[in-house]
Design a protein around this nucleic acid. Structure first.
Lengths: 121, 121
DNA sequence: AACATTAGTTACTTGAAAGTAAGTATCTCA
DNA sequence: TGAGATACTTACTTTCAAGTAACTAATGTT
């Protein structure tokens, strides 16, 4: 009998995939990294800090991060409006692992770039 | 003076992003997880194990993983052809961190699903 | 002679993520 | 009086990752 890999049956409905898919989009990880460095940050400050994100994608990504409980959104009923975003404990616990990945990428990127260059030839 | 977030200047050329982007695609992580469980695996066995990947995407993803030195491809000059894929040491070192993320996702997915449900209402 | 096997390639299509640009509400300040 | 600030929303367009399906080479098998 062959060894079975149970993990991968019905993988399309896999909840792990559902959760991790959100780490694979273009902006979520970056926003978490930024909010992990500060107490909180307002919308426009985030926009300027990241630089190349559109307002729309900033809004969309912040909403999904909020929906997952990774960041907290606080509205101050002032005019002009003030909205502050901060990372939650859950977000911080994820960020620990993301930072490990970033460290790994920094440690290995030279070797990887070299591998890619070799591979093309 | 405000605190600067150096990490994010010129982020589009950021090598960390270049490396981690490949973790964000649909199949790379899954293939690494499979190859992390066995000594090696042939193309068609991988295809059947994953189930819902197309031949094309399996080829494409294996090629990029190979280009990054995360897996090794060995061709045996037989007919019909035999090609074996195995994870490299570099791939294993990445997999450690990926598995941490998977563990985190498993630990937190219930809470996250609950948060998402609440958020929609 | 035709079918199976293996590990692909090729050409075309689709769909979802992301981008663009303009509009919105409300107040303050010059 | 009209321009600026803030945090968006909306409608439309683009892009590219991924999917589909057919084709390939070389040999062994019936």
């Amino acid at each position: 009998m062959e060894k079975k890999l149970e993990i991968f049956s019905h993988f399309e409905e896999c909840p792990v995939r559902k959760v991790l898919n959100r780490c694979g989009d273009k902006w979520s990880v970056l926003i978490l990294l930024v909010l992990g460095e500060v107490d909180n940050m307002r919308f426009n400050k985030l926009h300027k800090t990241i630089g190349d994100i559109s307002q729309k994608m900033l809004t969309v990504t912040l909403r999904t991060l909020e929906a997952d409980g990774l960041i907290k959104r606080t509205v101050f009923p002032e005019i002009p409006p003030r909205v502050e975003y901060e990372i939650t404990e859950r977000g911080k616990s994820l960020l620990v692992h993301i930072n490990k990945l970033v460290d790994w990428a920094e440690e290995n990127m030279e070797d990887i770039m070299e591998s890619r260059a070799k591979f093309e030839s």
